[in-house]
Amino acid sequence: MTTNLLNNNLPHLPESANTTLLKDAFYQHVQATVQLTKVALALEWTVFTRFTVGVVVATFLSIVYLMFTLRHTRRPLVIWEKLNKPIIKLFRPRLFAFLLGGMNPYTTSIDMTITTLSKGFCTGFMRVIYNCHFSLHATALATFAESVGELALLSSLKDDISDTDLVSLKIDFKKKARGLIAASTEFCLPEQGDQDSENSPSKLKMNVVLKDRTLETVAVAHLIWHIAHHSSHYHKSEQ
């Protein structure tokens, strides 16, 4: 009987009030979840932003350092390999073209990009430079072929080489050059025994093949280079 009296004295909430309390509790739970998610995202974004800024700053400083230290380097293969670093590699063609302009200012007159450079091997492409006949200018082709050939030559020479001069450039044109032009050459430095004299300058021959976007040969450049060795190197050898 006492239990019944207590139960009768407790307030009885209508079903609508219970539903309202459940809705309020659910709404508060959702708000707390959303707030927690915002805090987590803000923290993750802060970490990601700091990491990204750190990578960008480190990359920029690395590029500045490499450009400063390599600005007077006369060995293109060393420059190419130095630029083969994470993230910096993405900008390597443009950075290499800028440094190449310091070694060979004529390369800045054509829009050329080096894609591959290894010992005795070089490939690149050049964008359109039309003349009045709506074909690629012959001088641009000659400059492009000379630049690719010189890179292949310099990448295969040793430290005992002081001077390299182009003494002959002959181009056999196969067809009109239009659109994107690719050039490639592969060069093997002959053995000392194949040259006339170890102490005398040597003449080296190479061919550079130029093709269009359909892989048809546009022209073949025949280059003859005159190279000379360091005189001090041979003075030491004679001693």
Rank of each mutant, 00 (worst) to 15 (best):
L61Y: 12
P201I: 12
D24I: 04
M103Y: 04
F121P: 00
R50T: 14
H235W: 09
T139A: 08
T107A: 02
M1T: 12
L151H: 00
R213F: 07
T69V: 11
P86C: 00
I114Y: 02
F144H: 02
F51C: 10
N199S: 10
D111H: 14
A97M: 11
S118M: 09
P14I: 13
L90G: 08
S147W: 00
A182M: 12
R71D: 05
T214E: 10
A219C: 08
Q35C: 07
Y106C: 10
N9A: 08
Q31C: 06
K170W: 08
L136Y: 04
D163L: 10
T59M: 11
A142D: 00
V34D: 03
A177N: 01
F60K: 13
F121C: 06
N8W: 09
M126V: 04
H72E: 10
L66E: 05
T214R: 13
L5Q: 15
T20E: 15
N18F: 15
T116F: 14
S62W: 04
L10E: 02
L157V: 06
L153S: 02
V208H: 00
E146S: 03
T164Q: 08
R75W: 07
V55N: 13
T49C: 05
F96R: 01
F48Y: 12
A25E: 13
T217Y: 11
L70D: 04
K119N: 10
I171M: 15
F134H: 14
W45I: 11
I129P: 00
H72Q: 11
K38I: 03
V34A: 05
S156V: 03
